[in-house]
Design a protein around this nucleic acid. Structure first.
Lengths: 173, 173
DNA sequence: TAAGAAATATTTGTACTAAAATATTCCATT
DNA sequence: AATGGAATATTTTAGTACAAATATTTCTTA
């Protein structure tokens, strides 16, 4: 997603809040860049990217899983997961097992190396947020939640379908 | 950035706010998916992706620009811009001009087709946010700004360098 | 003026992401 | 049992994104 510095655009003339809108968009952009930068950093220090690490962690926490289930848990499409697993398998961190009675299903298992890495893994990016949030008073957190919901709303929530929606289906909007 | 459903992880045991942290992370993830989904939708209806559209728009608003300047305005690296321009040029929407006295510099110009598209372009994703935000009372907007700043802060702002930081350099943190 | 540093654009290599098409297997209905 | 439809995983194709390496040109400074 490439949000650039908003500019007085073709049609619309901007009202007083212009600068604030500008800053909000800028902040969203930075939020997103935080993710990709964290991935790069991970890769340097641990030879795994953030999606790869997330994949290892859900396997560590849930035991062997088929790709479709992994996709659902880490919220990407299964065609994406295939590639992530390819790379993890190539590094000897997971292996594909065709051990289900249903022979369409492949189970992904952690190898010993994969388990070790999952145990000693650096915190996934969530942890950074979690650690920060813990230092905030409760009402701040409520405020953040509320405002994020508002933003997601603005971005047209009904377009945001993912393969299998979270865990419990997301609250109706 | 792949944020998965947060889980009681390796080391950390979670405190009462657990569910709220979980929701915040989920919301951030959705915010980010909104972007990529919007890109896909754009591509279907207008044959340009969001980065491509943003590129066209900054050219429309600022006149011919070198790739480095475009990179700065749409906040991506110039190696990324090269590819975006390649695709736009291939579609006949822009052309590369070597018309600067400094012969390292290449200027990207809109073609007539590019201008037309920029004029009739669908709103970039920002517009969606803008339109939504306009319906909100001023104090809501302030609240959103404040909370986003907080979040960006948590994600370790000093790691978030970009090639040329925005316009005025972002506020010191 | 010559050598080295800086700026600009591009190339190369890797990863992620998703839609669409494909192959395989399973299941239900006839 | 056979056909058609659903589920599962993969391949293909295309786009975004970035770091690192490269080539070219300009600037600096010695």
């Amino acid at each position: 997603m490439a949000i650039h510095t908003p500019t007085p655009s073709n049609k619309t003339t901007f009202e007083p809040q212009h600068d604030q809108v500008r800053e909000i968009i800028y902040l969203i952009r930075r939020l997103m860049q935080a993710g990709s930068l964290y991935t790069k950093e991970l890769n340097k220090n641990y030879q795994v990217s953030a999606p790869q690490l997330n994949c290892l962690l859900v396997l560590y926490e849930n035991g062997p899983l088929p790709p479709s289930r992994i996709a659902s848990l880490i919220m990407v499409k299964s065609s994406t997961v295939t590639g992530v697993i390819d790379r993890l398998e190539h590094k000897g961190l997971v292996k594909r097992m065709r051990n289900s009675p249903d022979r369409r299903v492949i189970n992904i298992e952690l190898t010993d190396a994969g388990k070790t890495l999952a145990q000693n893994a650096p915190p996934p990016i969530q942890q950074k947020i979690v650690d920060g949030l813990k230092r905030l008073p409760q009402n701040k957190m409520e405020s953040i939640t509320h405002n994020l919901q508002l933003l997601v709303h603005l971005l047209d929530a009904q377009d945001l379908e993912i393969e299998h929606p979270y865990e419990e289906p997301p609250p109706p909007l």
